[in-house]
Computed example of a mutant assay.
Amino acid sequence: MKIETMSKLSEETIAEKLKSLEGWEYTDNCLATTFEFKNFKEAFTLMTRIAFECEEMQHHPDWTNVYNQLEIRLNTHDAGGVTEKDFQLAEIIENLVSEQP
């Protein structure tokens, strides 16, 4: 699913949309969250699944992984901030996390 570049969302719109994304916050011009898993294998498995979705969307997170923790930051560099594309990817990530055994 390729999504075209979109316009930067206002802070008010971002705040409203964040109400439906538990555990995510708007910070430093990005949507950000941290997930903690039982071990490195679970964290890396989820990263791999997310990577396939990111490639499909042509939209890639800034992320770091240390052992069982995965920190994710989303923004649309072309738009200079958070767009609908970032919320779409955040929702995909949430769905993948919820499918984890």
Rank of each mutant, 00 (worst) to 15 (best):
E84R: 10
H59P: 02
A90S: 04
K17H: 05
L31C: 02
T34S: 10
F40I: 11
E25W: 01
Q88P: 03
L70G: 08
E94L: 12
E53M: 07
P61T: 01
G81K: 02
M47D: 03
C54E: 08
T64I: 06
I3E: 12
T45K: 15
V66C: 14
V82A: 03
K41T: 11
T76R: 01
A15F: 07
K2F: 14
N75Y: 00
V97F: 13
P61S: 00
A32P: 02
K85I: 00
L70S: 09
K2R: 12
S7P: 01
E36S: 13
A90C: 03
L31M: 02
W24Q: 00
T76V: 01
I93R: 00
E55Y: 03
G80I: 03
T34H: 06
D78V: 04
G23S: 05
N75P: 11
E56N: 14
T34Y: 06
F40C: 08
P101N: 13
S10Y: 04
C54N: 04
D86C: 06
G23Y: 12
L46I: 10
V66E: 13
A43F: 05
V66S: 15
P101Y: 06
F52P: 04
E11K: 14
Q58V: 10
W63F: 07
I3T: 00
G80V: 01
F40Q: 08
Q100H: 05
N95D: 15
K17E: 05
N75G: 03
F52Y: 10
R73F: 00
C54H: 04
R49L: 14
T76K: 00
E4H: 08
T64M: 13
C54T: 03
E25N: 11
E4S: 14
L9C: 02
L31D: 01
S20A: 15
E53K: 15
L89C: 09
S7Q: 14
Y26T: 01
L89D: 06
W24L: 00
M6L: 15
A32S: 10
T48G: 11
I92V: 00
E25P: 02
K17C: 01
A79C: 12
D86N: 06
Y67W: 15
I14N: 02
E11A: 10
K2L: 13
T83L: 02
H60Y: 06
S20K: 11
K41F: 11
L96Y: 02
K41R: 13
T33V: 00
E25A: 09
D62Y: 09
C54Y: 11
M6G: 15
N39P: 04
I72C: 07
F87E: 03
D86E: 04
L21H: 09
V82H: 02
E12C: 06
L21W: 03
L74N: 05
N75C: 09
I50W: 05
E42T: 08
Q69G: 05
K38F: 07
E55L: 11
F52H: 08
L21Y: 01
K85P: 10
V97Y: 14
H77W: 01
K41S: 10
W63A: 14
A51V: 13
K17W: 11
L18P: 08
G23C: 05
R73G: 07
T13H: 08
C54G: 04
H59M: 12
A43T: 12
L9K: 09
E11L: 09
M6S: 15
I92S: 05
T5Q: 11
I93E: 05
W63L: 13
